[in-house]
């Protein structure tokens, strides 16, 4: 009888301990991290291989184990692109030392005007680590399409000659190379910094 009690009691206690341990280990992992941005699940970021504003060919694979922030824009754009890039620069600055783990790239949707030199000067206005990417219009077209980015050259009476309508969403690729977040144009510096700090930590 006593033996039974010990066996049953012991088993219950063991089960409780395992359950408790499990609760402490698993539950925190199950708790969803609330990102400010829209979260994508399980999408491998398609590769981007283009000409960098640093004068080198650039591939996403170069940023292994880094968080990569991808923005499609163009240097002729005086309003929305600077807003977005300066927000990204401020958000990155908020990360302190972790900022080294975040690489921001702007893929031009205007390869005709945006040469690597033009992009280098433009990107450096916001953050010296920002990289501009340009290349063959057909390659840019293909990359934009697989990233779900729309862009369209629009003729205008403006002296600008032509302008480019384009998707204003910012994409964030996590350390494992998954396309993780879609950040909308309305996101604030703080919201972006919060999301990035979670991804780098």
């Amino acid at each position: 009888m006593t033996k039974w009690l010990i066996i049953v009691g012991g088993s219950v206690l063991a089960a409780l301990l395992v359950g408790l341990a499990g609760w402490f280990v698993v539950v925190p992992r199950l708790q969803p991290q609330v990102f400010n941005a829209q979260v994508m699940q399980g999408v491998d970021a398609p590769d981007i291989e283009l000409q960098g504003s640093n004068g080198q060919p650039v591939s996403l694979a170069d940023f292994e184990d880094q968080v990569v922030v991808v923005y499609f824009g163009y240097t002729f754009c005086p309003d929305v692109c600077p807003i977005t890039l300066s927000k990204l620069a401020r958000a990155r600055a908020m990360l302190g030392d972790d900022a080294d783990d975040v690489q921001v790239v702007m893929v031009t949707v205007d390869p005709e005007r945006d040469t690597p030199e033009v992009l280098r000067e433009y990107a450096a206005r916001f953050d010296p680590t920002f990289l501009g990417l340009t290349g063959d219009p057909a390659d840019i077209d293909r990359i934009a399409t697989i990233y779900g980015v729309y862009y369209q050259t629009v003729d205008t009476e403006s002296k600008a000659g032509y302008l480019v309508d384009h998707t204003s969403t910012v994409m964030v690729i996590d350390r494992s190379g998954e396309l993780k977040l879609l950040v909308s144009f309305d996101a604030t510096d703080d919201e972006i910094a919060e999301d990035l700090s979670y991804l780098v930590s």
């Binding site: 309003d79 929305v80 205008t156 403006s158 002296k159 600008a160 302008l163 309508d165 998707t167 204003s168």
Partner: peptide
């Protein structure tokens, strides 16, 4: 060099800039 009046419009996440003659 040149100054113009423009308006940025956002529709479904797509940014477009309109020249305002």
């Amino acid at each position: 060099q040149v100054v113009e009046l423009h308006e940025t419009q956002m529709s479904d996440g797509v940014m477009s800039m309109q020249f305002l003659p």
